[in-house]
Design a protein around this nucleic acid. Structure first.
Lengths: 194, 194
DNA sequence: ACTAGAAATGAACGATCGTTCAATATAAAA
DNA sequence: TTTTATATTGAACGATCGTTCATTTCTAGT
């Protein structure tokens, strides 16, 4: 009795994520989104409600992808700590060249938005905390496996990691190329609080 | 034979800086600027050329203010290193509460803009490098005065400082309040490469 | 006081913004 | 095959965007 949805929701959100990630919320127009995801205004609004609604879904999508990548890194590598390091290198070195923006989409969003879009801002903040918690969980697992001393504070290390990633990604957009990124990342894991 | 300019250019740029700093380039409209700086469109365009032109002047103004604050901190405090630390605390703790945004305007701009506004983007990148150079100059002065070992790499420390500031300011906007910011800043100056 | 010329004004421009909705197309149920 | 409900379309909306320019206001030099 119903006509089934034609468009591939996952694929559409992925394309929208890339555009929003590149140009930011205010820098992206609905017209550009229509072109990129190949949908007409009516369909977009039926499926996502508004420009804000679609953006919110892309934030969730971006976060989920990040968590999956972290999980993948930590299981693929020979140790959890090596997995974390591989994850950071993926973010900062690989994505610096091929991602829509070398910066973290969540950090970009937190930087861009004000309380005029408090719902989106809160979503981005919350997602950043989710990722930090995932770091902490991995670090605690590493601690149980003896990779990290029991005297170390995993919450502190997770927070430190977030700060280093945010700082490095911003810096590397400003000073593109010519940076010993791999070496700088190694340094992070060889300094306190690690 | 000529009518002298009425508006106070310095004051106007300062107000424009605060609005742009708060809302970003794309998030700020000329109408909002008109209200804040109390000038009519014609006057603004006669004086600054365009929305981009005014933004570029605010970037220069912001950078100049930062350099002056750094200079002031380093001469007021009892040592250069203490001055640098005071400067960082000014940025991260004081400005987190009262500035238009807790984030660095240059970092915000670099995060927000793409090559669609390459002139502004380059200006922001360049200004960040100028400030890093000022850090390096102060560190070298501290080195000559024996505050820092001669074995330390001032360029490396200056870069490290930039990354920590960018990271901390982003992080503290995401996790407002409840952070031991002063302690975290002390930690920066007590870890490598310091 | 007069006047020349620059500064300041604000109505108005075309373009684009995010969004709506009547009309159309389509696929499943009858 | 017909009916029915929903997915999709795209022209069009009012609002706002950045910008222009004919006009008015003001001041310094005569």
């Amino acid at each position: 009795m119903t006509k089934s949805t034609k468009f591939d929701r996952e694929q559409v959100i992925d394309k929208a994520t890339n555009l929003y990630w590149q140009k930011g919320f205010h820098g992206t127009s609905m017209r550009q989104l229509q072109d990129v995801i190949d949908m007409r205004p009516g369909s977009i609004y039926a499926a996502f409600g508004s420009k804000e609604g679609l953006f919110k879904e892309t934030l969730a999508h971006y976060t989920q992808q990040g968590l999956l990548t972290l999980e993948r890194c930590c299981t693929t590598e020979h140790s959890i700590l090596a997995g974390l390091k591989a994850f950071v290198k993926e973010l900062i070195i690989v994505q610096a060249e091929q991602a829509p923006s070398s910066m973290c989409m969540l950090a970009k969003t937190i930087g861009e938005l004000t309380n005029d879009n408090s719902e989106l801002l809160d979503e981005a903040k919350s997602s950043l905390k989710t990722i930090e918690s995932a770091f902490q969980t991995q670090l605690e697992k590493a601690q149980l496996q003896g990779e990290i001393g029991l005297d170390k504070d995993c919450a502190l290390m997770a927070r430190h990691l977030q700060i280093q990633i945010a700082g490095l990604r911003t810096y590397s957009k400003a000073y593109d190329g010519q940076l010993p990124l791999a070496q700088m990342i190694d340094q992070i894991f060889d300094s306190p609080p690690f």
